[in-house]
Design a protein around this nucleic acid. Structure first.
Lengths: 195, 195
DNA sequence: TTGACAATAGAACGATCGTTCTATATCATA
DNA sequence: TATGATATAGAACGATCGTTCTATTGTCAA
């Protein structure tokens, strides 16, 4: 039972190791995961992957993946003709952790309850990212305390007066008393189907 | 000018190194980044961080971070009283890359155009994750070809008949002809404010 | 069959790894 | 000031690192 080793096989196994262990394998470990008995064979294949641009070496000579294996392709805005022809034009990749969160230390997540922002496309059970330590501006969606409860509202500033408005005609605008408490600004909304 | 070194300082510098380089520093590198001249000092502080549970060692003895430094706290669903009292109850952290994408290889991103799913809370310029190689079920939102254009619709199966319905009264339900083409199932919606 | 090339094995090299030791310097508190 | 705890320095250890070498095996085309 002879197995032909291909460049893609080796790449997949190294990426699998990275995803599982959170770090790149050493040459000894590559020797194990590709199923050979000599480190020089691992070196042989890694040299090929370096040549192919799949792997890189950082300033200290450590192996790194050229691309984040969890990143996704971002198709263009124009859907027409997709996906038959667009396979080539697809580009721009994103790591959500970096894309969505600017300041991890001053941010937290909140599972949405209620329908106060339904017309802004924020629905029950959505997850929002709330960034504290961020000054709310006119039109921002904020997490604010209203009547002793925390809720999401549009932050509307007209001159010196501030009003909190829901994105739902059910609720009336609120002109807060002196003790306006704002926990943070909503910087992103995430909704996941198929839990 | 004497600087007092604290456990938090060392932790921050190690996390900063990890975020910048995508890997954990060696003891020699820790020696550099915390500004001392002996590896044993790095070992001294790492031992403290291991003791404090900030760092771990994996099966092979490599240092790893106990928690993903990009992960965010998830506040409970009940907002009442937040955030004064909830600081202690906050738990459950998430890495979006892992949370949102199950199969990176068969998924891609799409910037939404049009308003066909507005009543489902999917708006123009939102980003959706489309998973190909996933069988659509009744009620799923799919990316489908309608009249030569790709658009998002509810996938509705009643017995053997399939209809595509928009979440917008402007558009009528569609009973597709034989050549129903579905690119994939929408598994998540992402909206980011404050680009 | 033969020759050329690709792939694997195994051994060896210096360099760096993580660890551990002793010794010194600094600080807080009695 | 004296004392113990904390923090830093420096040297040394075996183990593993990445690299490089020679030698052998396997594959495919001439």
């Amino acid at each position: 039972m002879k197995v032909k080793r291909t460049l893609q096989d080796v790449e997949k196994k190294i990426i699998a190791f990275f995803l599982k262990n959170g770090r790149m394998p050493s040459y000894s470990e590559i020797t194990e995961i590709i199923g050979v008995r000599s480190k020089s064979v691992a070196h042989f294949w890694v040299a090929k992957l370096l040549d192919a641009g799949v792997l890189q070496k950082d300033a200290k000579g450590f192996l790194t993946l050229t691309r984040n294996p969890r990143a996704l392709k971002l198709a263009g805005e124009v859907c027409a003709g997709f996906p038959a022809s667009a396979e080539e034009e697809i580009r721009d990749i994103v790591s959500f952790d970096e894309y969505l969160v600017r300041n991890p230390e001053s941010s937290f997540l909140l599972s949405v309850t209620g329908d106060s922002m339904i017309d802004a496309g924020i629905r029950e059970k959505d997850i929002v990212i709330v960034e504290t330590k961020k000054e709310p501006g006119d039109g921002d969606i904020v997490l604010a305390e209203v009547d002793g409860n925390w809720t999401m509202k549009y932050f509307c500033r007209k001159g010196k007066t501030v009003t909190l408005e829901a994105a739902n005609p059910k609720y009336s605008p609120i002109i807060p008393r002196a003790d306006l408490r704002i926990a943070g600004v909503i910087t992103a909304v995430i909704r996941k189907y198929h839990k």
